[in-house]
């Protein structure tokens, strides 16, 4: 639930609170994302060059994606 200073977003399908006016980069740090990773913001690819200047709003969804085994 959002408060006056925080907003609620979703990271990897789970609710996550970040401070208002947080960037994607800040949210990833708080999430403790382990590099290397790539990101979807609201189901669209977000280039890593945009993390520091993309601001999150209530209800945004982030997917933090990393390498796994594949065939």
């Amino acid at each position: 639930m959002s408060t006056s200073n925080h907003i609620e977003i979703e990271i990897n399908t789970r609710p996550f609170q970040v401070a208002k006016d947080s960037t994607v980069e800040q949210a990833l740090t708080e999430f403790n994302a382990k590099p290397p990773y790539a990101v979807l913001l609201n189901e669209q690819f977000l280039s890593n060059s945009l993390y520091p200047r993309t601001y999150l709003v209530e209800g945004d969804t982030l997917e933090v994606i990393s390498a796994i085994q594949g065939g």
Binding site: N12, T13, F31, N32, A33, K34, P35, Y37, A38, E63, V64, I65, S66, A67, I68, Q69, G70, G71
Partner: peptide, 15 residues
Amino acid sequence: TLSLSRQNPQANGGQ
């Protein structure tokens, strides 16, 4: 070949 999946930081993020 390899693939991508949601990261779980508690599982070391696939590092």
